[in-house]
Nucleic acid binder design. Structure first.
Lengths: 106, 106
DNA sequence: TGATAACCGGTAACTATGTGCCTATTAGAT
DNA sequence: ATCTAATAGGCACATAGTTACCGGTTATCA
């Protein structure tokens, strides 16, 4: 591990790119085929793999092309609500709730 | 589940956005604080959460702000090489390998 | 070792996203 | 029911990513 400790935005993009590339290689797909399957240009794929900047759409298309959409599940889990909450709340919160005011300290 | 079955690029972006929003709410963070912490504008965060298009950089910054970088680990695992391969290959493949030619069918 | 496909990176034109600002809606607390 | 902060989205301009094309490098096969 250790890699995630850096966590500067650019480093993270490069890290993600490297991993996607390894994922692609493990699928034995070349850039041309992958880009084609994803419906993007080879250059966009290269930029993604090099951590040189991409869009979320490009990322998702590539994940799909690599048949790794399960990664999305893990990126942000479907429901991360506390089971306890479910018992009390009929519907999930739409906003963050903050106490309205401090006690006016009388 | 089921959600991932649709897998049209736009649907996926919206799905990802919804999940990120739920993640943020589960952290009890509002958009302003989150955007600030991530170093992006509130509008960019709104676009991300609404699945209206974002950059990978924005996504990663938000994940970091939500302290959910572990999601990246799972998105694309650090090393997805088959243990068996490790025994034979001194270094991981840099390119996809394809057989050069068919047998000229003599 | 030689051949060649896979990979890499630059540019220019186009398109999409980010930012800042502004107004409207509304969930949730009182 | 009322109040208000959180959320939502439009617009104009700045910035960043995508595409298509190019020539150069190099891993890997033969």
């Amino acid at each position: 591990m250790a890699t995630l400790a850096f966590s500067a935005p650019n480093e993270l993009q490069e890290l993600l790119g490297e991993r996607l590339k390894r994922l692609r290689l493990s699928r034995n797909l070349d850039q041309r085929t992958t880009a084609e399957k994803a419906g993007i240009s080879e250059k966009a794929l290269r930029n993604l793999e090099a951590g040189r900047g991409s869009t979320v759409e490009t990322l998702l298309r590539v994940l799909k092309a690599l048949e790794h959409l399960r990664g999305l599940d893990m990126l942000a889990p479907e429901a991360s609500v506390n089971p306890l909450e479910l018992l009390r709340q009929p519907k999930p919160p739409q906003r963050v709730r903050r106490p309205r005011k401090q006690n006016p300290a009388g």
